[in-house]
């Protein structure tokens, strides 16, 4: 039987050192809303819990020349309360706002939501659609990875032993940009996405879509970046025909499972519906900006 220890280092180097030393026996504690459920459900038996919330960089929010950077352990409530970030990336905030209750968001972080590596994580599709990059620290130093490349399968990430996500950086937004995240659940709150859809678009002055990213959650082993759905918008006035094509491309990209939260057929069908609705809102926001 393993003994559990707890550490709360106040520097990144110390945290990385502890993680590297403990190897597979270590678990990172950010908000704890996933890891403590696993721990007390006897689904994991770590030797060391490394609480990273005392490391300043992990909970910092900053902006430089229009490019936002958020600490990976920043709580959902803190992020939602940050007026500047919320105004810049409403779709990301919509994703964060759906991570559990107010109580859960008082603790849960975007970094944890990503690294828990659930295909249904609500903040991940909008991060992918935003083109956010995960800044990673590890025994071998720092590296960057696009968010869509972090999750490699249910519960699996591309992080090497001893590595952790430190922060996320967002690209500077051109004018006439907008994003949106919508998710489908039977209840209004406190549910796991049956389908999640994020769309991020940029229009030119004439209203033609010049850039788009579409991401879907809960419809495949990992959150998806759906390039075909984005391509359906790019170069078009984002009219009904383009939205129909986007919707069809979203459905076509799905590779879901049947489970207690939804059937394959249901997920495929509603992924198209939700992608279109998210696109409509993202476009409306882009036209206003």
């Amino acid at each position: 039987m393993t003994e559990l220890n707890y550490a709360a280092p106040d520097s990144l180097d110390a945290a990385v050192g502890m993680l590297a030393d403990a190897g597979a026996g270590a678990r990172i504690l950010a908000g704890g809303t996933d890891v403590l459920v696993l721990l007390h459900g006897d689904l994991i038996e770590p030797e060391l819990i490394v609480d990273i919330k005392n490391i300043p960089e992990l909970t910092d929010i900053s902006v430089e020349d229009g490019a936002w950077k958020i600490g990976a352990a920043t709580s959902g409530m803190k992020l939602m309360g940050h007026e500047g970030f919320a105004a810049a990336w409403p779709g990301v905030i919509e994703g964060v706002a759906l991570i559990g209750s107010i109580q859960v968001k008082g603790r849960a972080s975007v970094g944890g939501n990503l690294c828990n590596a659930s295909p249904a994580a609500d903040s991940v599709p909008p991060l992918i659609a935003a083109g956010a990059v995960a800044n990673i620290a590890g025994p071998g130093g720092r590296r960057d990875l696009p968010v869509e490349d972090v999750v490699t399968g249910p519960g699996q990430t591309a992080l090497e032993a001893g590595e952790m996500v430190v922060s996320f950086t967002f690209p500077k937004r051109p004018p006439h940009s907008g994003d949106c995240y919508l998710r489908l659940t039977p209840r209004t709150e406190m549910d796991i996405a049956v389908v999640g859809a994020a769309v991020n678009v940029t229009l030119d002055d004439g209203g033609t879509c010049t850039a788009a990213r579409v991401s879907l959650g809960a419809v495949a082993p990992t959150p998806l970046l759906v390039e075909d759905a984005a391509a359906a918008l790019i170069g078009t006035p984002a009219d009904d025909a383009a939205l129909v094509a986007l919707s069809e491309a979203a459905s076509a990209a799905c590779d879901p499972i049947d489970d207690k939260r939804g059937t394959i057929a249901y997920r495929i069908k509603t992924a198209g519906v939700m992608a279109r609705r998210a696109a409509e809102t993202a476009l409306e926001r882009a036209r206003r900006n």
Binding site: Y6, G31, L36, H40, M77, S101, Q103, V104, G106, R107
Partner: peptide, 26 residues
């Protein structure tokens, strides 16, 4: 004990949290 019912809600340094999802050492 999984953060789904809110019966254990407390304030931790002014933040509303589920005390079942907080380690006592924290």
């Amino acid at each position: 004990s999984t953060g789904d019912c809110g019966a254990c809600s407390v304030m931790l340094d002014g933040e509303l949290v589920c005390s079942c999802l907080v380690l006592a050492v924290e």
